[in-house]
């Protein structure tokens, strides 16, 4: 197995029939190869199909054409080797944070016993800074804390790929910065291959090794790749002072603007046709 092709998303298409029976491709010919331990940000305008790609990698929705291969195995079903952190925390409200984390462990490590499971869960909750709230129910926690539980639940599975679907989208900006650092710390420690879907440019640069820019849908695909060569572990202040950061930022924003302009153009030409 080659480490530089750990996760291979090759020529993937996802299409849905519209009410008239025509197939509309949301994503078409999406190609991405991810090296082991790499962190990839997927960025694009909202509605361009970023989450669709992520859900396909997670196995939650089937692929129409093409294929996704993870460590020489094709992805068909969802599984604990691809842990997902959703945009909403999606905790089960009738379980405590501890029980929420434990839930997946039993099927992920069937050979371990109950105390060992609990040890793992406790450690993961400690890593996200929740070692004081093991017995709290989701309704007793803030949105940020709930999302921390969501992250703990994902990393507890020791996944091959960590899939983050706009995990900070619903949080206020302070909490968002905190959680970004929480995740970065974990990634530095465990070197988990990660796909992060986001539409926050700064977040994409700060977190990722490479940024995958998606064109606007329908028929969205990889528009451009951008390599971010900041050393790890990263320090937010250092990066903010680095002039490269602003170049990257400018490049990303330019791409997004171009996408938007193209879209406008398309619309206009369609209108003229009518």
């Amino acid at each position: 197995m080659r480490e530089d092709r750990y996760l291979n998303i090759s020529d993937v298409t996802k299409s849905y029939p519209n009410p008239f029976g025509d197939e509309i491709a949301v994503v078409k010919g999406f190609d991405l190869t991810v090296t082991k331990g790499e962190v990839i940000s997927i960025i694009g305008h909202s509605g361009c199909g970023k989450s669709t790609v992520l859900n396909m990698v997670a196995g939650l929705i089937p692929v129409s054409l093409g294929g996704i291969i993870l460590e020489s195995c094709e992805v068909i079903d969802p599984g604990p080797d691809r842990a997902v952190v959703f945009q909403a925390p999606c905790l089960l409200p009738w379980l405590t944070s501890m029980e929420n984390v434990l839930l997946g462990l039993r099927s992920a490590y069937p050979s371990l016993n109950k105390t060992e499971h609990e040890e793992i869960a406790k450690y993961c909750l400690y890593q996200v800074g929740l070692d004081g709230s093991l017995k709290k129910y989701p309704r007793e926690m803030s949105g940020g804390m709930q999302q921390r539980v969501g992250i703990a639940r994902a990393i507890a599975l020791k996944p091959k790929v960590l899939l983050l679907d706009e995990p900070f989208g619903r949080l206020d900006s302070l909490t968002r910065l905190e959680l970004q650092d929480v995740i970065l710390n974990i990634l530095d420690l465990q070197k988990i291959t990660t796909l992060l879907v986001t539409h926050d440019v700064d977040e994409a640069i700060y977190m990722a090794d490479r940024i995958c820019m998606m064109t606007n849908g329908p028929r969205a695909k990889v528009g451009r790749m951008l390599e971010i060569k900041f050393p790890r572990p990263r320090d937010r202040e250092e990066i903010l002072e680095d002039p490269d950061f602003y170049d990257f930022r400018q490049e990303l924003l330019q791409f997004l603007d171009d996408c938007e302009a193209e879209k406008e153009k398309k619309k206009e030409s369609e209108l003229q046709l009518v």
């Binding site: 997670a58 939650l60 842990a83 999606c90 839930l103």
Partner: peptide, 12 residues
């Protein structure tokens, strides 16, 4: 969402 969680966690 809850069903998706159950699927991702591969619950029996």
């Amino acid at each position: 969402d809850h069903l998706n969680v159950a699927r991702v966690l591969n619950l029996r």
